[in-house]
């Protein structure tokens, strides 16, 4: 298999695995956040906590872009 093919698979793995990780974490935080919101929590703070794991998939995206030679 050509090296480009391997790179493409690597890029796909970088995005998809980090996406799964983000989804898993976000689901947990989100569920707890909804609970807190129902108890009259501060929407802003909960939103911030919920979006923290998104950093992972963004880094995954960066890695994928680098592997594919985009940046």
């Amino acid at each position: 298999m050509a090296i480009e093919g391997m790179a493409a698979i690597g890029a796909a793995a970088a995005v998809s695995l980090t996406a799964i990780a983000t989804a898993y974490t976000q689901a947990k935080i989100g569920a707890a956040g909804v609970g807190a919101l129902a108890e009259d929590g501060d929407f802003g703070n909960i939103l911030i906590l919920t979006v923290i794991p998104e950093t992972m998939v963004i880094f995954g995206l960066v890695v994928a872009l680098i592997i594919t030679g985009f940046i």
Binding site: E54, T55, I58, F59, L61, V62
Partner: peptide, 12 residues
């Protein structure tokens, strides 16, 4: 750095 990279979501 993470914050700046976070704007890559605009691209996404």
């Amino acid at each position: 750095i993470a914050n700046i990279l976070s704007y890559l979501r605009v691209f996404g």
